[in-house]
Nucleic acid binder design. Sequence first.
DNA 1: AACTGATCGTCAGCTACGCTGATGATCAGT
DNA 2: ACTGATCATCAGCGTAGCTGACGATCAGTT
Lengths: 175, 175
Amino acid sequence: MRSSETISSATGYLLLRLANLASARMEEALLPFRLRGRDLRVLAFVQDGELSQRDLSQQTGLDRTTMVAVIDGLERNGYVRRERSPTDRRKQLISVTTDGRTVLSEALTALRWAEDGFLAPLGEDERRQLHRQLSLLYAAHDPRCQTDDTSELGLLLGSDAAGTRHSEGPTRHTT
Amino acid sequence: MRSSETISSATGYLLLRLANLASARMEEALLPFRLRGRDLRVLAFVQDGELSQRDLSQQTGLDRTTMVAVIDGLERNGYVRRERSPTDRRKQLISVTTDGRTVLSEALTALRWAEDGFLAPLGEDERRQLHRQLSLLYAAHDPRCQTDDTSELGLLLGSDAAGTRHSEGPTRHTT
DNA sequence: AACTGATCGTCAGCTACGCTGATGATCAGT
DNA sequence: ACTGATCATCAGCGTAGCTGACGATCAGTT
């Protein structure tokens, strides 16, 4: 048995390597827009309404401190604006500018091109299937999409258990 | 139209975020083995035969300089050995130790546990489908997995073309 | 045998990322 | 007015990956 096959055939491994490759392509596609991947990610959510940086952090999954830098960049390029919330002056409400809206739209299009290229090896149906499975999995894992009762805890325990208490499973006696 | 839906529904986006989540779990699962994700990745390929660090770099997709550090770590833990090739004394042939073999096997098992947990939200069939699509896509993109006759060149051109010529697509006049 | 160009491993140094912890400003409740 | 919590921000840490350079070694040429 070749162990490389063992690991190459692991779904998680495939996921990671493919994400790497896809990421490279996407970054490349976004280059001319002066946007990094995470910038677009944030920008896309900004357009949904007047959100605070905190909100954006949670929605995008980025760290709150990272968000500062991202917004800085977007603001420097004139894609978004910072405004203190009138009701809660601690918050910075982030709003997209017309420039930002334009760039977002163009960048998303460019991204789709890149994505299409990346997924080209798959047929129409396979692509749809892939998208569906990924969506399901993402919905199940993203804390943002959880119904409040099941809550993060339940799922974490449910699936993490395999990882955390693997003292029952494969153990490693730290020599 | 909410643009967050636009980007959240992008397959590439899902791929990236899921890879992030999966990666965190896998790293966590490997913790007790004193292995990082990339360590295991390398270790798995080491077992395939006596490969040079150069070979490993290409196979795993890691940088040649990164490989030095990875091998250093693996060697420090006694999982692999460095030996100069007798036929080409520039090369370092990396071979796995019995300790390394044991750890690899255990770690792979732990990884499967974690993976199962992560994929739990999907049904049996969905999981299989997902794995299949990912495999296909990976095979199409990874230069290493190409059948030797078609050769790296052919498929690279075949699939890269769609991504490379996106200059035909939406362009951005760098003002 | 000497010379040239290429290859391999290694190292120093740079850049970028994400995170922790602390700080000042602000809010909500008492 | 006081206390505790929340928000944005900043400094700093550790890590990852990459570039560029270097010595050692190989293959081919003369």
